[in-house]
Structures are given as C-alpha cells and as structure tokens.
C-alpha cells in the first residue's frame, strides 16, 4: 500500500514543570465533546502511578506524523480523517463504526484513543476542531501547562 506524505499536524505539548496534575484537562475534554464526564469519554489519558512513586500526569495524542491509527482505519478519510486546517487526525463520530482498529494500531503502551462502547465510536483528540478559542484543555488549564504547538511551529 502506498502511503502518501501526510501534512504535519498541530499538537498539544504538555509542560511537566507547570502541571499540577489537577486533571481538569481530562474532565473538560469529556465535558466539551460528550456532555458528560467519565475516564473513557476523554481523549486525554491519565497515568496514576501512585504505587510507582511517579508523577501523576496526563497523556495526550501525539497527532503522529505517521499516524498508524489513520492507516489502520477501514474507513480511512471517512471515519478517521485529516483536518485541512490544523492537520489533526480526527474521528468523524457520524461515520465511525467503533471497530477498534485505530486503538489497536496506536503505537503507545497507553493507547491514546478510547472506545465509547455504548455508542460504538472511538474517542480521539481532534484538537477541538472548530472550537472558538482553540482546544478546550488548553483553555481551562490555569497553569498554562498545555501549549498548542501549531503546525509548522517548532
């Protein structure tokens, strides 16, 4: 299969030094996108790590340059698409069939995509496409520990 070069995406950078581990990004993400809060409704994952004595922290979708999720989607460009403005690899909720292939393909140990089993759709960071003011997680972080790195930036 040929894989054409995809446009780079903007992404959210987490600044550990400023993060107070309050989890507001996680709850705001679910609130904005799903109108309800639960861990599986947020596109932001969380590492607890209390038993390991490590810093509790959020995990964000990297909006990979080579997005395995995108390539794995059986409805590529229909259900898992590329945003023409931000480059975000996003899921069209109306088209997603909840097959879970994108989650399987995500290369990270803690998968950055969730499954809403009830609605049978995958939940993935879309950088809050179309939201005035940009991604909601960045907006509610009062420590400014989250930074939207726009494409072409850095």
């Amino acid at each position: 299969m040929t894989e054409e070069k995809l446009p780079e995406s903007s992404y959210i950078r987490w600044n550990q030094k400023e993060c107070s581990a309050c989890s507001r990004c996680l709850t705001a993400c679910a609130t904005y996108h799903c109108g309800a809060v639960a861990l599986h409704l947020s596109a932001i994952k969380w590492v607890e790590g209390e038993s390991l004595h490590v810093f509790r922290h959020p995990l964000f979708c990297k909006q990979c340059s080579h997005p395995e999720c995108y390539y794995a989607c059986p409805l590529r460009d229909v259900a898992l698409c590329i945003d023409s403005v931000t480059g975000a690899r996003y899921i069209d909720k109306d088209e997603c069939i909840g097959c879970g292939k994108c989650i399987e393909a995500c290369p990270f140990e803690v998968k950055r995509i969730n499954l809403d089993e009830e609605k049978s759709i995958a939940i993935k960071c879309d950088l809050c496409r179309g939201r005035v003011g940009g991604p909601v997680c960045v907006a509610v972080c009062d420590r400014q520990a989250l930074i939207l790195v726009t494409r072409g930036g850095e």
């Binding site: 507001r24 705001a28 609130t31 904005y32 799903c34 109108g35 309800a36 809060v37 639960a38 861990l39 599986h40 409704l41 089993e117 009830e118 909601v136 907006a139 509610v140």
Partner: peptide
C-alpha cells in the same frame, strides 16, 4: 472507576464558568 458517566446539563455554560 468504570464507564459510568457524570452527565453535564449545560456543558458550554459550565466550561465558560470554570474559566
């Protein structure tokens, strides 16, 4: 924690108030 959801009656209003 499981998949039980805490419903938010007015999500946009809430996010504005939170900020």
């Amino acid at each position: 924690p499981g998949s039980v959801e805490v419903p938010i009656a007015r999500p946009d209003k809430l996010l504005a108030e939170v900020q």
